[in-house]
Simulated assay, not measured.
Amino acid sequence: MSRYGGDGVARIIAVIADVAALILIGWIVLYILKANTGNEVVGWVHSTADWLSGWSHDIFTPNSKWLRVLLNYGIAAAVYLFIGNLLAGRIRRA
Rank of each mutant, 00 (worst) to 15 (best):
V41G: 09
I91P: 02
P62V: 02
L81A: 06
I16C: 08
Y4E: 07
K34H: 14
V41K: 02
A17N: 10
V41S: 10
R68T: 09
V19T: 08
P62C: 09
P62K: 03
I23M: 02
G89L: 04
Y31W: 14
G54L: 06
V29H: 04
L52H: 07
S2C: 07
G26D: 13
L33F: 12
T37L: 13
V19M: 08
K65P: 15
D58G: 12
W44N: 05
R3V: 10
Y80P: 00
W66I: 13
H46A: 08
R90E: 06
G74Q: 00
A88I: 03
W55H: 04
H57N: 08
D50G: 15
M1V: 05
I12Q: 07
N39V: 14
S2Y: 09
V15W: 11
N36G: 10
A35T: 04
M1R: 09
I25Y: 09
F82G: 08
D58W: 10
I28L: 11
A20K: 00
F60I: 07
R11W: 06
I28R: 05
Y80G: 00
S2D: 13
G43H: 11
E40N: 12
H46K: 15
V41L: 13
I59R: 11
D18H: 11
G43Q: 12
S47H: 15
F82D: 09
L71N: 01
F60S: 05
L81E: 07
A94G: 12
L24T: 05
A78E: 05
I28C: 00
D7A: 04
A76L: 08
A76I: 04
A94K: 06
V29A: 15
A77Q: 01
G43N: 14
S64P: 00
A78P: 02
I83S: 10
Y4M: 06
D7F: 04
G8M: 05
G38N: 14
R90M: 14
D58L: 11
W51V: 06
I16Y: 08
A88W: 01
Y80N: 00
G5K: 11
I23K: 01
A10F: 04
L67D: 03
I91C: 09
N63K: 07
I28V: 14
L70G: 07
A78R: 01
F60M: 08
L70D: 01
L70C: 03
V42G: 13
L30F: 15
D7V: 07
N85Y: 02
N36F: 13
I59P: 03
G6E: 10
F60C: 07
V19R: 01
G89P: 05
R3Y: 08
D7N: 14
E40W: 12
I83D: 08
D7Q: 06
L24C: 07
I32H: 14
N63C: 07
